[in-house]
Design a protein around this nucleic acid. Sequence first.
DNA 1: ATGATTTTCCGACTTGAATCCGAACAAGCG
DNA 2: CGCTTGTTCGGATTCAAGTCGGAAAATCAT
Lengths: 204, 204
Amino acid sequence: MARKPRQRRAKATVDAIVEAGFITMAERGPAATTTRQIADIAGVGVGSIYEYFENKEEIFSVMSDRFIADTIAMIQPLIPELVRKPIKDAVLELLARFRDFLQAGDERYLKCARHAMTLGFEQHVEPLQKTLSELVTQYLMHHPETLQIRNIPTMSYIMINGGIYSVIRHLCDPAPPISFDELAEGLANMVSHYTERELALVRE
Amino acid sequence: MARKPRQRRAKATVDAIVEAGFITMAERGPAATTTRQIADIAGVGVGSIYEYFENKEEIFSVMSDRFIADTIAMIQPLIPELVRKPIKDAVLELLARFRDFLQAGDERYLKCARHAMTLGFEQHVEPLQKTLSELVTQYLMHHPETLQIRNIPTMSYIMINGGIYSVIRHLCDPAPPISFDELAEGLANMVSHYTERELALVRE
DNA sequence: ATGATTTTCCGACTTGAATCCGAACAAGCG
DNA sequence: CGCTTGTTCGGATTCAAGTCGGAAAATCAT
């Protein structure tokens, strides 16, 4: 951000711009999203955009950050509850909540997520990955027997990344070959089967 | 593509443009890739680009198609060999080959893959997914006991998508927390553990 | 309160890349 | 060789991103 908004009026302007970003992105897609479009919808002059954003990219960047931050804010409070559940139920619950989260507010986030990959969205995922890593760590602590699993960092990496992208991919697919519920069920089975098999192996 | 090249000279021009696309993309990244850059490197006039491509996007589009096609061409002949191996070895072999493939030819594809997500790359992945589905199908045929696994389409979807994106994500990550070999080992374990656990369950 | 100072806002203007176009050039063909 | 058709070129045109300088609003100092 080029300059920080100091007055309340300015903060409102910045908000309006980001908000307008979400609106145009959801309505027109990223191609038709010009600075003028955004300025018009935000009800500000083009110049104002450049008071607070280095360039158009940065608007998308801030939008991505906000989306990820909101997602994390949604997940964080669930952690204490999730770590007490059986692993399969925990995954299912997490995914169900995420689905609801995307559909809230006239599906704004869902519509934007469809174009997420087109923009440099992946660079903002890291905090989410960290949060999910945290969730995994806490889960392991609450289920000491699972600590015997080998290569926990690697498997955590794979499941988190594979999970995130399977879901995003599914959301982006206009005609997915499986339903979201099937996807969720599959991911949950994936994780639980893996841990069960691994624990069976180390017990031998 | 706006017009089809009829003479050999024209085909060479089209090739030169796509080739130049790969070169600039690998060297400068997508931001610095302008039509003039491409035209200069290809040794043609800017105008020539628009004889065969609707717009700059389409160059990237054709590049993606070619990359996917080459990947498939690399995988197809491996299938008969892969379906005979134990599942873990098959996954490891496939990933090792893919790694070598990316590193071939001065790492051209690897360098481009880094920027792949930025462009509308995902829309071109489908044929690759189809090929991998084919591989899965053939594998199942060669190992009839695995046909007892439930939800094969779902799990196939998850493993293929999760696998593709875990790998791409890993390639794009400048400082990945795990090595490629660890990733490969993890994915292989993921698949094999799942099938083993699932077979154990249905036997009960 | 009121003038000084800082912050914010704006939209015509500049810039530079994408795209178009028509003249010039090469190839195939009788 | 003339003629047609395919091909190439690079300057002209278009269009959106990003700039700038001054006006208006908010805040501050006295």
